[in-house]
Amino acid sequence: MLKKKDIVNIGDISNEDIFKVFENASKFKKKLSKEEKIKTMDGKIMTTLFFEPSTRTRLSFESAMHRLGGSVITVSEPKSSSASKGETVADTIRMASSYSDIIVMRHPMEGAARLASEFSSVPVINGGDGSGQHPTQTLLDLFTIWEKFGTFNGLHITMAGDLKYGRTVHSLIRALNRFDTTISLVSPESLEMPDHIISTLKNPEKVIKSKSLDEVLNSSDVFYVTRIQKERFVDLNDYAKVIGSYSFDIDTVSAMKETAIILHPLPRVDEISPEVDNDPRATYFKQAENGVFVRMALIDMILGGE
């Protein structure tokens, strides 16, 4: 039951509800492909508060709300408005919740979404907090995997790249570990998955650190690739070295299972070469597209009947 619920982290959503989100997302996907009009959120208002720039997440949330027949109010540039005048998140949220039925917030500080949910009188969806959680990205990642395999059980998932600062992998590993999956982690030592994430896992023994991509290339069903940010490196030579061993080109991809898929939260830079885009295993654009359907399902379940 997601009715009236806050979605701060993926732990707020049960496995049962995850599958309900998938069902609804598939339903909306089908309806939209037939250009059916949907009016379930008619008269409802969503506030989007992005205290940190984001194109994809914001557009996808706003598109989802409009597609459901609802409307969106937003602050074009929170940096130039209340926040920079020193207004607290708590006060901004109190105000926004009196104007709308649901709030989507992204904030550069960890824990900001939890705090917002405590001061809001309407449901809050976390659109990413610092290097913390990004639960709706996780839902669309999961949905994309589920669409392909129809299950999570028995899958081998490899997460590669920046596993330390990449918040999408922090949420995703928690969710996947709730199912019977094997997860391999491949990252430079300085960008490993933090202990405070590993320590939250129900089945940490199903998570294996791998030294290189080669080890897992022909056994993984899903490759979840994240961006390694140049800014994380003092020496650009180190960056060049690292990017070399964690990037995907046509040769890497040809060593994978035929049925494998490659996901990436986007935007990608050097991690996946554009020549991979036409390979049937490249699934990242489809994944981004799924963001709208999954968010439609989530909004509809929180504000609607179910």
């Binding site: 982290n9 824990g111 705090l115 320590s199």
Partner: peptide, 29 residues
């Protein structure tokens, strides 16, 4: 976020991992 000027007090919850004792922040986790 508890280290910003927000009107909240910190909340930590005890966790036992083997013989190791940890406290987890309710906000940033």
């Amino acid at each position: 976020v508890t280290n910003a000027k927000e009107p909240v007090k910190t909340v930590f919850t005890m966790e036992k991992k083997g013989d190791k004792l940890l406290y987890r922040c309710h906000y940033c986790e």
